[in-house]
Design a binder for these strands. Sequence first.
DNA 1: AATGGGGACTCCAGTCACTGGAAGGTCAAG
DNA 2: CTTGACCTTCCAGTGACTGGAGTCCCCATT
Lengths: 141, 141
Amino acid sequence: MNIGDVSRRSGLPAKTIRYYEEIGLIRPQRSENGYRSFRERDLHKLAFLGRARALGFTIEDCRTLLGLYEDEGRESAQVKRIAEHHLGQIDDKIAQLQSMRATLDHLVHACAGDHRPDCPILEDLAQKIPEGLSCESERVR
Amino acid sequence: MNIGDVSRRSGLPAKTIRYYEEIGLIRPQRSENGYRSFRERDLHKLAFLGRARALGFTIEDCRTLLGLYEDEGRESAQVKRIAEHHLGQIDDKIAQLQSMRATLDHLVHACAGDHRPDCPILEDLAQKIPEGLSCESERVR
DNA sequence: AATGGGGACTCCAGTCACTGGAAGGTCAAG
DNA sequence: CTTGACCTTCCAGTGACTGGAGTCCCCATT
């Protein structure tokens, strides 16, 4: 299989697949013409990576998860720890976004949105310190 | 005011303030010794930027919002449009994260997390195509 | 044999919003 | 005179790709 086939079958862009090789997540063989030559096993790995990424795991988590997947002697506790930690991060992000959302929604509703210059959104930004959203707090990435 | 004072009073790291100058969000004057010299107005702008960033607006949105803030002839509709669009983005992100969260939470609960290698999380990543989370779908940034 | 089109290859630069660090200048206190 | 806290610039790195340039390869058609 060439990269185009694998791209179609895994749903990952060819660019991404090359990138994954570059950072050592996969090691496809090469044909005589220099083209990457993928086996079913590579495709399987890429699909695994695609799904792990779709769940929001970082590339480094994906690397670890792939390693555990191929390690017969793994303990499911190792996998669970990674997943739980990630779940915690997701919860943090959701909380932060919901806090932003609440403030923003309030402001949007307060703004007339007409031709006049008066705007509670700008007034808020110019003055208020949104609680729990001070500049010290961590940002959602 | 030197950058340290402004940093303390705005809550923004000095590095960030220098960066904001570099990209033209602020234009502090300079003292004879080459130090940046901030006025109250600059501090006010920085606080504005910090709050807009805390609400998740992009830098370019912040630039526009700051411009509108200083434009007496603005229409509040312009501000509202930006805020509404941003609110929509936030809602999309929240929805995506909640979808991830649901799948992940389910998997975490299904995993024993003990010394044995059997792991539903890995099995899922290796086989299932999570609905609504296929690789084509946009990623949360 | 020439040509055209669709892949594939590498390499470099850009994204976003900072952040870290090196190497050096300035200033007030002890 | 030295110390240490500031300040300066400049360069590189982050994460996970993405875009684009320039070149090469393969197959089919003219």
